[in-house]
Design a protein around this nucleic acid. Structure first.
Length: 210
DNA sequence: CGGGTTTGACCGGCGC
DNA sequence: GCGCCGGTCAAACCCG
């Protein structure tokens, strides 16, 4: 079952790159990436950290997958978040756990992925339905951390959302676990860019033919 | 009325 | 053992 490693789905048609930056050792010392070219309301800009020792490379292809997150695919309060340029470089991410699909060889069900994005809203629509179960102010951060759980029955994926203490216009999102179901209303698909050879993981929309 | 959010309390891990 | 801190629980509340 399609353990969907990255809980994104795409709405935006344009995508661009996530530069391969050194992954931050912690969530706090990464710096804003773009100089806000167009100052989009939402701008995924940085991978933060992954703390699994083992990295099971996503089975997309030889090149880093490009994953355009879907932002605000239609939640009630559409804050007109616009995705602009996003590329996820698997070299920068550590996603652990079971992407093999081989049931016998499943390891920890805990994969953790965190990234930092520029967003006016803290809750971006990644296609899954989340239920908030906690909020906590954390030490060394003026901003509270919010805790969400996938509200799909039997799915125990969690995510934490907090604003970057250094730049509150950035949101740090940490996903923990693997969804054991597909995103509601989303059909995942992949496509490969003929030029770069990169694989794109998209969501509910087919990208404009290029 | 059902489902989601809020928020204070509680719990467990960890460092001292 | 104690205190701090992050994570979770759960009752109250809100909203459609």
């Amino acid at each position: 079952m399609a353990a969907v490693g990255l809980p994104f789905h795409a709405k935006a048609s344009s995508m661009a790159h996530f530069p391969s930056r050194s992954q931050g050792s912690s969530s706090s010392n990464s710096t804003p990436l773009h100089a806000d070219a167009a100052a989009p309301a939402f701008d995924l800009s940085d991978f933060i950290m992954f703390d699994q020792a083992e990295f099971a490379p996503p089975s997309f292809g030889p090149e880093p997958p490009v994953v355009p997150p879907m932002v605000d695919g239609g939640r009630s309060s559409d804050q007109n978040s616009n995705l602009s340029n996003i590329t996820i470089n698997s070299g920068d991410m550590t996603v652990n756990a079971r992407s093999t699909g081989v049931e016998g060889e499943r390891r920890e069900e805990t994969s953790r992925i965190a990234f930092r994005m520029k967003s006016e809203v803290e809750v971006v629509n990644d296609g899954f339905k989340w239920r908030k179960y906690g909020k906590k102010s954390v030490k060394n951060s003026p901003n509270p951390r919010n805790y969400y759980r996938c509200s799909t029955e039997g799915c125990s994926v969690k995510k934490r959302v907090e604003r970057d203490r250094e730049d509150p216009s950035y949101v740090i999102t940490t996903y923990e676990g693997i969804h054991n179901h597909m995103s509601p209303g989303v059909v995942y698909y992949t496509t490969q860019d003929s030029v770069s050879g990169r694989y794109y993981v998209a969501g509910c929309q087919v990208p404009p033919d290029s």
